[in-house]
Amino acid sequence: MRWNINRFFNPENRFWAFMERVTDICVLSFFWFLFSIPVVTAGAATTALFQYTLRLTADEEGYVWKTFREGFKKNFGQATILWIGAVLVGAFLVF
């Protein structure tokens, strides 16, 4: 069997599709870390991360930044309130 170099560099190759997903997850992890630095926004960042991964498993994902930003903005209020509540309950249980 001859090895075809053109098949290897085809962007629709399974290897490159896998590498694209790995890269998307790495970028997504960076965005999550960046947006979680102010601890108050960690809930919204986690919600945006989870929303993107759900789209990733359903093959509906778009651009990482656009999807993450939309999920962050859409769920910011509700996720922040729930996150602050979870932090307060966790602090209460620790003390």
Rank of each mutant, 00 (worst) to 15 (best):
F50S: 07
E20R: 15
N13E: 08
M1W: 07
S36I: 00
T53G: 00
A86Y: 04
V87H: 05
K74D: 06
A17C: 13
K74T: 11
Y63F: 13
M1D: 06
T46Y: 12
R69I: 10
L88F: 14
M1A: 13
R7K: 11
F35R: 01
L54S: 13
V87W: 08
F76Q: 01
G62D: 10
Q78S: 12
V22C: 08
A91V: 10
R21W: 06
L34Y: 07
V39A: 10
E61K: 15
V87P: 01
D59E: 13
I81D: 05
L56K: 11
A48G: 04
F31D: 00
E61M: 09
E12A: 11
F68G: 02
T67F: 04
V87L: 15
F15H: 06
Y63L: 10
W3T: 08
T23N: 12
A58K: 15
L49N: 05
E12V: 03
I5E: 05
L28E: 02
N10D: 15
N75P: 02
P38A: 12
A58S: 14
A48W: 00
T57C: 12
D24Q: 15
P38F: 07
A42T: 06
E60G: 01
M19R: 12
W65H: 10
F68N: 02
T67Y: 04
F72G: 03
L49R: 01
N4C: 05
N6K: 14
S36H: 01
T53N: 10
I5F: 09
E70L: 11
G71D: 02
F68E: 02
G85R: 05
W83T: 00
I37S: 00
T23R: 15
P11S: 05
I37Y: 00
A42C: 05
F9S: 06
A58F: 05
T46H: 14
T53H: 09
I5K: 07
S29K: 10
V87K: 09
W83E: 00
A45Q: 04
L28S: 06
G62I: 10
L54I: 13
